[in-house]
């Protein structure tokens, strides 16, 4: 049944005719030490498009896409003008004394329906809190 119907479907979209995705993020790796329970990082997000675009950023695990509720991103959803660049503030909370916490901060243009390849760039971040001195 389906093969017959397929002949009617002349074309299937691999990617649609919507504008293609692009994103720029750096640095790709950063680490820092703190003596308190929180550590902040700054990353630079850029819009390579010639038009304003909406970008989203989220923290995921170092080796998987598990959400990281201990990480805050400001802003996590932003609109950048053509060729514009802005800083993202990334804050890790709840660091225990002596803890080393690694994760990735990934940014991508907000996905659109029927867009096939979702391009994202991830920065690997590591925060470490100094151990208490007894």
């Amino acid at each position: 049944m389906f093969p017959a119907i397929t002949r009617l479907a002349a074309l299937a979209l691999f990617t649609s005719a919507v504008p293609c995705a692009a994103v720029s993020l750096g640095p790709l790796e950063k680490s820092g030490v703190t003596d308190g329970p929180a550590k902040a990082f700054y990353l630079s997000l850029a819009n390579p498009y010639s038009t304003a675009e909406r970008f989203v950023a989220e923290a995921v695990g170092p080796d998987d896409d598990a959400p990281q509720p201990r990480v805050l991103v400001f802003p996590s959803d932003t609109i950048l003008g053509a060729g514009a660049r802005r800083q993202l503030l990334v804050i890790v909370k709840g660091l225990a004394p002596g803890e080393r916490y690694g994760f990735r901060l990934c940014a991508m243009r907000a996905p659109r329906p029927q867009e096939t390849l979702h391009a994202r760039v991830c920065s690997k971040l590591v925060a470490r809190r100094l151990a208490d001195r007894g």
Binding site: T6, A9, T15, V23, G26, S44, A46, T116
Partner: peptide
């Protein structure tokens, strides 16, 4: 830094 750009979309046919 890294910049990823999808230059051209693709099309699948039957």
């Amino acid at each position: 830094s890294c910049t990823l750009t999808l230059a051209t979309p693709g099309v699948m046919t039957a």
